[in-house]
């Protein structure tokens, strides 16, 4: 059994939003009750519409923000109990992140070399020559040339910028990399290159990925485990092949039916979701998915479903519990 790197149980993150002067603040439940395990060399894909809490999860995992409640341990250390700065520093080096927009995630005033050396400058006591050496090694690892060292980010294409961002994430030798939609801002031809680079790096360095995406064809290609989220709550969770071949939750089924397929024989009935994603400030009663679900009945609007095990995956759905689908 490979080593467990992240253990998350019942993670909640609430933001209070004030609607202006003299008005009571409201609670935005960005994330409620997310739990998963991540092992060395594994890829966990987090899937869902925009606004479902994927990026909040990324912020919690990278320790930029603290969960409101729930347990998160990284590399065997419980985040809630960490007091000393040294351990925080060590954990920070364990989890690094690659952002969605490579045009926004690189400081336009810093040269590539400085961008790559910044994490080393903050977290290590290496000399300037050693730092430069490491930065150059990392650049060749992600397929950048030495002469790129002194260039500014605006001189690069989207794909190259994302390579720089990946190099920056990897330079501290992390064990977990959170990839927040790393290819959705890139051209399709470049997407494949970057995905292949990520897969190669994972094999070479034994990294664990938390891959946040809404592009299911990419998720199918690289995910070991899949976590489907809706409005901050997990709705279905399980091994990638199980979820893709036998989706149980009506929302997962709808998501999968919306993915284009090249195989005509496999053509599924397209399930159309009507209505908008409800606001997380004012979520619907009961199951959050009930206003858009074709299988919803009265019980779905009264209480919230919990995750139950069905075969190899876990699903939160009353219709499934009651055998209606």
């Amino acid at each position: 059994m490979s080593k467990q790197l992240i253990k998350a149980r019942g993670l909640h993150k609430h933001y209070s939003i004030s609607e202006g002067f003299l008005q009571s603040s409201k609670n935005l439940k960005a994330l409620s009750g997310v739990g998963f395990d991540l092992y060395e060399g594994q890829t966990l894909a987090v899937v869902g519409e925009s606004g479902c809490g994927k990026s909040t999860l990324a912020r919690l995992l990278t320790t930029i923000e603290e969960p409101t409640s729930g347990q998160l341990s990284i590399d065997g250390i419980d985040m809630g109990s960490v007091q000393s700065k040294a351990i925080t520093k060590q954990l920070r080096q364990t989890v690094q992140m690659v952002f969605q927009d490579p045009f926004g995630s690189l400081n336009p005033r810093q040269k590539v070399g400085d961008i790559l050396q910044e994490p080393l400058l903050i977290n290590t006591s290496l000399s300037a020559t050693e730092r430069k050496q490491k930065a150059l090694e990392m650049m060749s690892l992600v397929g950048l040339r030495d002469e790129h060292f002194h260039r500014y980010p605006h001189m690069f294409s989207g794909g190259q910028r994302q390579r720089i961002a990946i190099a920056r994430a990897l330079i501290l030798k992390p064990k977990v990399v959170v990839l927040d939609e790393p290819v959705s801002a890139l051209d399709v031809s470049i997407q494949a290159q970057v995905i292949n680079l990520l897969v190669d790096l994972q094999k070479e360095l034994g990294l664990a990925y938390v891959f946040i995406s809404h592009d299911l064809s990419i998720v199918r290609h690289i995910a070991d485990e899949v976590l489907v989220m809706y409005l901050g709550k997990p709705v279905e969770q399980g091994p990638g092949d199980v979820i893709f071949n036998d989706p149980k939750h009506p929302y997962t089924q709808a998501l999968l039916s919306a993915t284009p397929s090249t195989n005509i024989k496999n053509k599924r009935q397209r399930i159309k979701l009507t209505g908008e994603l409800p606001s997380p400030i004012d979520p619907p009663n009961g199951c959050a998915f009930n206003p858009r679900c074709q299988h919803a009945n009265k019980s779905c609007t009264i209480s919230e479903p919990v995750m139950d095990t069905f075969g190899k995956s876990q699903v939160a759905c009353f219709a499934l519990d009651e055998g209606r689908i």
């Binding site: 995630s105 690189l106 994490p119």
Partner: peptide
């Protein structure tokens, strides 16, 4: 709120570094 500031935060930059360098 730009991503490169968050990236520096993830890398562990303190307030002074974020303010004056990022």
């Amino acid at each position: 709120n730009r991503d490169y500031v968050t990236a520096s935060k993830v890398a562990g930059a303190g307030p002074a570094r974020l303010m004056f360098i990022s």
